[in-house]
Design a protein around this nucleic acid. Sequence first.
DNA 1: TATTGTTATACTCTATAACTATA
DNA 2: TATAGTTATAGAGTATAACAATA
Lengths: 142, 142
Amino acid sequence: MRDPLANLPGYVLRRASNAVLGGLHQRLALLELRPVDASLLMILHAKPGITQSEAGRLLEIQRANMVPIVARLEARELIERRRVDGRSQGLYLSPQGEGLHADVRAQVQQHEDGLLAAIEPGLRAQVLPVLHALWSAAEKLA
Amino acid sequence: MRDPLANLPGYVLRRASNAVLGGLHQRLALLELRPVDASLLMILHAKPGITQSEAGRLLEIQRANMVPIVARLEARELIERRRVDGRSQGLYLSPQGEGLHADVRAQVQQHEDGLLAAIEPGLRAQVLPVLHALWSAAEKLA
DNA sequence: TATTGTTATACTCTATAACTATA
DNA sequence: TATAGTTATAGAGTATAACAATA
């Protein structure tokens, strides 16, 4: 056997994840964004006004680790903070942020089109169902 | 929409991978092993005498980063090094390593059985084909 | 009391460069 | 010249603890 771990779903899942993320990383680097930055831009586009903590819970990133991410995007004037109450602040895409979000969407779309094109047609429709099933199965066990 | 990124295969792939790996991490912690340690034990069981560099290429871990992994397992007397020539050394499971490998196999098997049991039966047979397709699609694009 | 944002910090994982000894 | 193993180091990502201000 060439790769003795190739029959282990968990192992293949991780290898696939790393390989796919690597490709996306390259594409997003063209926009000077990391994958996590891009995901936050997409969250803010879909849920404008969400707080930093809420976004962190959605992405499974802890409060403390959201700080440098938000600061980085704010420093580039891609996002804005507006006070909600004394302790919370809603996050919004700035006009530049909306513009860059469109580029992100395009890169993500091209990336995924490229991936799906390299997968046998009969399997394509199974990709998302299988991934969601694995995700929810793993979370149920935890 | 609850999670605006739930339609992105790459995102769901990463979330699924992290969730699955988290569960495996907990199980292997019972054996005081990290996932990468367990994967190396399985490689050595399947390919005794493989060199450190070859194992690294198989697992996509760079030479330099293999050093602490091998040192950790050797310090626990789970693996042995035998010189092949002046610069290479074959790696082998020690008797204790073989014993622990059996425990690793059992934990991995239970982990994956638990996962598959939480997935709709009709989807189970698609899991490995989809993951391999994603892996090889991503590597083709790179 | 619980939550938000923050700081500081530590640990793991990964990446690169350089060195030696050998092929 | 190329490869194996190694060292040192830097960069990410992630985890915990603590604090002030506010709900």
